[in-house]
Design a protein around this nucleic acid. Structure first.
Lengths: 195, 195
DNA sequence: GCATACTTGTAACGGACGTTTCAAGTATGC
DNA sequence: GCATACTTGAAACGTCCGTTACAAGTATGC
């Protein structure tokens, strides 16, 4: 339904916190009556928007190279994709909902668990493959996630790509300098592929 | 005014997004009429709450050791203070407002600039003192800020202190392994004091 | 063409919101 | 005691909200 796409665009431009049916309907060329006819209720509409926004977020990461040559290039490529200006709306909405979910735990059930857990599950196998024990791999994935989130949070607020690009480079240097787990690596960087 | 303290407590427990005068008044043992009498308007009341919350946030960091022995201990001490459970409400409110400010740029004027700029200004001198050029120091400070913010964001969502404590340790290891700028250091860690 | 189902516009509902009106209460200074 | 200023309670104002009732419009199958 292309109507939903227009709604998602509007929500990304105007936020969820003060979303209201009448202005939304006018913006997407519809009416409150029709929106409720198709989505049953505002809450169900918001659910549909969140689902669609999540798909958009996943599509961003689908463009990432699968088995890059080096760790260095992986993180750099990930940041270049995430920080692209056309994706800003996705992350801005993500952080807005994150903040709302922190205070109202019943409004977006499971959102926070997924927001962290899904990405840890995504990052953890790479750490495992590079010699980290299960617990250490979880911790390593948590550190990676914290970095990405922190940089994105800053980017959404300041849009200062130049400064953050250098900061990410510094971060990569630090990760690169991290000794391999179990003393099994060459100490040059933490992993060679797929992380 | 102790009334304001009770209001801040209530806002930290219930969030800002759906704050409404009647439930707030009842919770703090007052009335909407009185709240508006003292604060002029809801908007001014929220401003007062934010100002007070900012003071509470600053008070948290005032407890940090001033000139710690090592970088390692500095970051660790900072995390131990920030992650203390009694401070959770401050950061939860911070991230909620951060998210709201991302979507509604007129509602909390200057908040985002301060949320990033103030902390960069706080972190940057340490990086300068350790040999970073002005631009590199800004980037280094940005990386530090991103890490802290990312870890706090995760902590607010999951409260998983054990996992995050290990993640912070890994992060510190990475920072420690970072070669000193300009090749002027010993390569063991990035700085020795006050950063 | 007609019956049927799907879709929409208009207008209103009840409720919550921030704010205001007005009057009563309460302290303070003389 | 009285005038004055500060503080509060009760109730209502106008507005916006999500939602619904109802009727009119429009497509589809026969």
């Amino acid at each position: 339904m292309e109507l939903l796409e227009r709604i998602v665009d509007y929500v990304m431009a105007n936020g969820l916190a003060e979303l209201s049916l009448r202005p939304l309907a006018e913006a997407v060329g519809s009416s409150p009556r029709v929106l409720l006819y198709y989505f049953e209720s505002k809450e169900a509409l918001v659910d549909a928007v969140m689902l669609r926004a999540r798909e958009r977020q996943r599509a961003i990461f689908a463009d990432l190279p699968r088995n890059p040559a080096s760790y260095r290039e992986t993180v750099r490529a990930a940041w270049d994709v995430m920080s692209a200006s056309q994706h800003e709306g996705v992350f801005r909405l993500f952080f807005e909902v994150y903040g709302l979910a922190l205070q109202d735990t019943t409004r977006f059930p499971g959102f926070l668990d997924r927001a962290v857990g899904d990405w840890l599950d995504y990052l953890e196998p790479s750490a495992r493959a590079n010699g980290y024990s299960p617990d250490d791999a979880r911790a390593f994935a948590s550190m990676m996630l914290a970095g990405y989130r922190g940089f994105l949070l800053d980017l959404c607020a300041t849009r200062d790509r130049a400064r953050l690009s250098r900061a990410v480079d510094l971060w990569i240097d630090a990760l690169d300098a991290l000794p391999a787990p179990n003393g099994s690596g060459d100490g040059d960087h933490a992993c060679d592929e797929d992380c």
